[in-house]
Amino acid sequence: MRRLIFAALAGGLFGAGLLVSGMVDTLKVQGWLDVFGDWDPTLAFVLGGAILPMALAWRWAERRKVAVLGTPVPARHDPRLDSGLVIGSLLFGAGWALAGFCPGPALASITFGGWGGLVFVAAMLAGMVATPALRTRFTPAHT
């Protein structure tokens, strides 16, 4: 039960931060990506503000190895890059620019973002459901 309460608190604080920072406004996000137009640097302040506490959190977590509720701290991923990471990140960036939404802000604003927000989230979830099939089809299985 405690696990669920803290998950909801983290989700709520994440959503509140996305609203306060202005990241639920697709024009601000597109303004950040529009380096050839009227560039808006707000997103750099958001990312900087978010990375600061997390850099401290990782130091503490890596030393402790186990989180407060007993779950082991997630292991470091194999640092090698793979085609999924490269191709996926490029596709994601293209979609991010087209709509001005990434997954967090799209979900945080779904209750007040109108039909457009709902259409985006529905397409995003459909893409997520389809990905395992695409992955086995286009990339060789890990050996």
């Binding site: 931060g17 202005g22 401290l56």
Partner: peptide, 23 residues
């Protein structure tokens, strides 16, 4: 400034989820 404040909130949310839930 609001971007930075909201960013800190996002970072604290990630901190909470990592340190308490381990996710």
């Amino acid at each position: 400034i609001w971007g930075f404040v909201g960013g800190l909130m996002i970072g604290l949310a990630a901190t909470l989820y990592l340190l308490v839930n381990g996710r």
